[in-house]
Design a protein around this nucleic acid. Structure first.
Length: 257
DNA sequence: ATGGTCGGCAACCGA
């Protein structure tokens, strides 16, 4: 029985309720990881997703951040927040679904290189790496998905020369990201699409960024090698970014046998 | 053509 998983930075789940509902209706993905839900837990719009057959897990806060997992199959061993960070940490949520551990993250954006926010991004990433290494083994199925706010290679953003050394395309971020890959995680989209020019994020502040394909690939579905071997395809749904009232990100999805 | 991003949330902050 194949299983499909997707990730989407919604930039407010309430503003994107129709878009996400319609996407699930059409795609029928088993697991959807959401970031930047921007809603406190009592206000999370669970009901429409439950009516559509999904369990909802969420950890949010006022105005900023917030992560959620929507899953057709019952989640087990739910965890909210990353050790060593605030109890209210709304950037990490995980569960075991169909015997596969799934971690959904919203990595700090980092603002600008040389600032406290950038150092916090690096620290958060290192803590996540330690958490993964301490709690999982690379030779068992596991998925780490979400918005990493890092483009890894020059082919993962539209103007690498312009942005080299800046936040989201800086060697210090990339070095930590590569440690996840070195440990045994595989970038599932890259596996199926070695060529560049595929993006998941287009900044609202760049006019007609989608049309001009001025984007970044900063959202990922990472899977341990044994699971990645079973991946049949991975795709980015640019159509959802072209609809009215889009998020600045779009859906990234993968299918496993 | 005489403007030019969103969302949250109520003045700006974060992305």
């Amino acid at each position: 029985m194949p299983i499909t998983i997707a990730t989407f930075n919604a930039n407010s789940i309430r503003a994107r309720l129709d878009l996400v509902s319609q996407w699930l209706d059409r795609e029928q993905t088993d697991i959807l990881c959401l970031q930047e839900t921007k809603v406190q837990d009592p206000d999370f719009p669970s009901r429409p997703f439950e009516k559509a057959g999904y369990h909802t897990l969420f950890r949010g806060q006022k105005s900023y951040n917030g992560v959620a997992i929507l899953t057709k199959h019952a989640p087990e061993k739910i965890r909210k927040g990353l050790y060593g960070h605030d109890e209210e940490d709304a950037r990490f949520i995980s569960a075991v679904i169909q015997d596969i551990p799934v971690i959904n993250v919203y990595v700090p954006q980092g603002f600008a290189v040389g600032t406290d926010k950038f150092e916090y991004k690096l620290r958060w990433l290192r803590d996540l790496l330690a958490f993964v290494k301490n709690n999982y083994t690379a030779d068992c199925p596991m998925i780490l998905a979400g918005d990493f706010n890092i483009a890894l290679e020059p082919i993962d953003l539209f103007d690498p020369e312009k942005y080299r050394g800046q936040v989201t395309f800086h060697p210090d971020e990339q070095a930590i990201f590569r440690e996840f890959l070195d440990w045994g995680l595989v970038d599932v989209f890259r596996k199926h699409h070695p060529e560049g020019g595929h993006y998941t994020f287009w900044d609202y502040r760049i006019p007609n960024a989608l049309k001009r394909n001025m984007g970044w690939r900063i959202d990922y579905i990472l899977a341990t090698a044994c699971l990645a071997e079973k991946s049949r395809k991975a795709w980015i749904d640019t159509r959802a970014r072209a609809l009215p009232k889009p998020s600045d990100h779009t859906f990234l999805a993968a299918e496993f046998d």
